[in-house]
Amino acid sequence: MKIIIRTFFKTLRWVLGPVMVLREYLTRPTGLVRSPAEQARVDQQCEGLALYQYRTCPFCIKVRQEMRRLSLNVAQHDAQPDGPHRASLLAGGGQAKVPCLKITDETGQSQWMYESSAINAYLNNRFSRQST
């Protein structure tokens, strides 16, 4: 029974994954337009951020869309396959749950933020037009 359920969900991901990625591409939001100096400052602040995500996760898509809307150049790491990014997520954040935003401050201290709504709220508070 376990194999049947696992096969069902793998097939579902295989079928729906490309549809979700296509939908994300077709509904891309228009990014904030900043002056070159403002955008350079925002890009510099984004160097301390990294998004651990799965390509077809709907909550990860929600965060990526918000990052596009805010014109943020945040490093994105695919944590779905076993590899260095997944190992880093497990070692730093403690769980292989996505989306996860790694926030590294000037002193090198890292904070791991889970939950798409919390990540989007953080990005909006830090990078929206009012705070730039």
Rank of each mutant, 00 (worst) to 15 (best):
V74S: 06
Q45L: 13
L70Y: 06
R86N: 10
V21Q: 03
A37N: 10
S88T: 15
D78T: 14
F127Y: 10
L16F: 11
K102L: 02
E66W: 14
Q80G: 08
V19G: 01
P81A: 11
I3W: 10
D78H: 15
I5N: 03
D78Q: 12
D78V: 14
E24R: 03
L16A: 03
R64M: 05
L90I: 15
G94I: 14
Q39A: 02
A121W: 12
R41D: 10
E115W: 11
S88Y: 09
W112P: 02
I119Y: 01
G48C: 12
T27K: 01
Q76R: 12
Q95M: 15
E47L: 14
E24Q: 06
G108R: 09
L51K: 12
L16E: 08
R13D: 00
I103L: 06
A96T: 15
C46N: 13
R34E: 00
V33G: 03
P99C: 08
N124D: 09
T7H: 07
L123I: 02
F8L: 07
V15P: 02
T132H: 04
P18N: 05
M20G: 05
T27N: 06
L89C: 09
L12N: 01
I4F: 11
W14I: 04
P99N: 08
Q65D: 04
R41C: 08
Q111T: 09
G92I: 06
V15G: 02
E38V: 07
A87M: 11
K102H: 06
L123C: 06
L90P: 08
G31Y: 09
G93F: 09
S35V: 09
L12S: 03
V74A: 02
R13Q: 01
E24M: 03
R6S: 03
I119C: 01
C46S: 12
F127W: 06
T11P: 01
P81N: 13
L12R: 06
D43F: 07
F127E: 00
I61P: 02
L123D: 04
V33E: 08
